[in-house]
Structure formats: structure tokens, C-alpha cells
């Protein structure tokens, strides 16, 4: 309808251990004006040295899909729980990989 809103986003990294190493997966969580009644919209924010690995939980735009988001219920669901789910899910299926270095 042409209206605009100022939204708040939280940008940071999620610590994930994969194959014995810990990685800091860059993510951005958008809090809508209806938050916390609705879940945040979450994206992986790859740096230029990374590429998105699309899969069950991440699409080509880096948008994150999780049952936790889909079944979000206030007040049981919160950002702390969401990030814990991300740590587990991304530990099994990292959403980003580093680009092969061009020699």
C-alpha cells in the first residue's frame, strides 16, 4: 500500500562447530513491528569470501527456514532458543562455505 516502516535488525555471527572446527556463521535477524508475536526474518549474510550452500534450511537468497521459526509461539519462542537451534542445524548443514581461493 506504499507505506514504509523502520525495522530493527540484529547482525552478528553464530558459533558453529563442524567437522571439529568452530566457524562464525554471519547472520542477520529482522525484527518486524509485530515481533515477538511473529518470528524474526532470518538471513545468512555471506561475506565476499563465502558462498551460500542452499538446502533444506537456506534458499539461494540466504533466507533461513527452520521449524522453530515456522512454529514460533510467544512467549515460549525467543531469540535465545532460535540461535540455539541455528547452532545445531548449521553444525549439521553449514549454510555457507568459503569460496575456493583462486591461485
Amino acid at each position: 500500500d506504499g507505506s514504509t516502516k523502520d525495522l530493527m535488525s540484529l547482525t552478528g555471527t553464530v558459533p558453529v562447530s563442524y567437522r571439529g572446527n568452530t566457524y562464525n556463521i554471519p547472520v542477520c535477524l529482522w525484527l518486524l513491528d509485530v515481533y515477538p508475536y511473529n518470528p524474526p526474518i532470518c538471513f545468512v549474510k555471506p561475506t565476499s569470501a563465502m558462498m551460500i550452500k542452499t538446502g533444506k534450511h537456506v534458499d539461494a537468497n540466504g533466507k533461513i527456514y527452520l521449524p522453530y521459526l515456522h512454529e514460533w509461539k510467544h512467549p515460549q519462542s525467543d531469540l535465545y532458543g532460535l540461535i540455539q537451534v541455528m547452532v545445531v542445524v548449521f553444525g549439521e548443514e553449514p549454510p555457507v562455505f568459503s569460496r575456493p581461493q583462486v591461485q
Binding site: 552478528g12 555471527t13 558459533p15 563442524y18 567437522r19 572446527n21 566457524y23 562464525n24 556463521i25 554471519p26 549474510k45 555471506p46 561475506t47 569470501a49 563465502m50 550452500k53 553449514p94 555457507v96 562455505f97 568459503s98 575456493p100
Partner: peptide, 13 residues
């Protein structure tokens, strides 16, 4: 200081 983003190296499937 927030940690530097990092990602695993792709494993050749």
C-alpha cells in the same frame, strides 16, 4: 569486538 565471520571449506563430495 564481534568475532570475524568464517565458513568451512567445501569438502569435495
Amino acid at each position: 569486538k564481534s568475532p570475524t565471520p568464517s565458513a568451512p571449506v567445501p569438502v569435495a563430495e
